[in-house]
């Protein structure tokens, strides 16, 4: 195995350099093991669970299916970069308050997916919410509290208008 890839990624607004990496490394692996950003989780390695959802040029994608070295010209945002300060976002707050978090392994991916959804579609229908997170498998909650958290976020955004 030759570990001779050197490149830079733009992650959460910062330029981060990757050294001595193997060509086959996914963005998920590089974020977690090389760039000190373990918030993005891996659970299937094939885009079937959504735990590794990140934003790439504004689109929600599975980091496990992005060859890291091909992402050099993209802006990547991970769960760590969803908010710049230590405060929780309204989505994160709702997830905690509505009981949408149990084991929490799917949670970072869901948080990114929900931010992405509400950014594109601030007033999604119930079906649109479900479809938008249908790529994020949660094994603990059965999704009921997750829906509640998304709806609570939408309500609070509407109330504060």
């Amino acid at each position: 195995m030759s570990a001779n890839e050197f490149y830079s990624l733009n992650v959460n607004g910062e330029t981060m350099s990757v050294q001595d990496s193997w060509v086959g490394e996914s963005l998920l692996y590089v974020l977690r093991e090389r760039l000190g950003l373990p918030g993005t989780k891996g659970a299937c390695e094939q885009g079937e669970c959504g735990s590794c959802t990140v934003l790439m040029d504004g689109e929600a994608v599975c980091a496990c299916l992005v060859m890291a070295a091909t992402a050099v010209n993209s802006e990547i945002v991970t769960v760590e970069g969803i908010t710049t300060d230590s405060e929780l976002t309204d989505v994160q707050q709702s997830f905690v308050e509505e009981g949408a978090v149990q084991c929490g392994f799917c949670t970072p991916g869901l948080i990114v997916a929900v931010h992405h959804l509400l950014g594109k579609n601030p007033q999604p229908s119930e079906f649109e919410i479900k479809e938008a997170i249908s790529g994020n498998i949660c094994r603990c909650t059965g999704y009921g509290r997750v829906f509640a958290a998304v709806e609570a976020t939408i309500r609070s955004r509407n109330d504060s208008k």
């Binding site: 996914s26 094939q46 885009g47 299916l65 060859m67 070295a69 091909t70």
Partner: peptide
Amino acid sequence: GGTDLMVEINFNHVKPTTMISLRD
């Protein structure tokens, strides 16, 4: 997009050597 090939790499079925990305 990588949605097929990366699965092959992640599942140890393909060992990439030279890669040409069309993404950009």
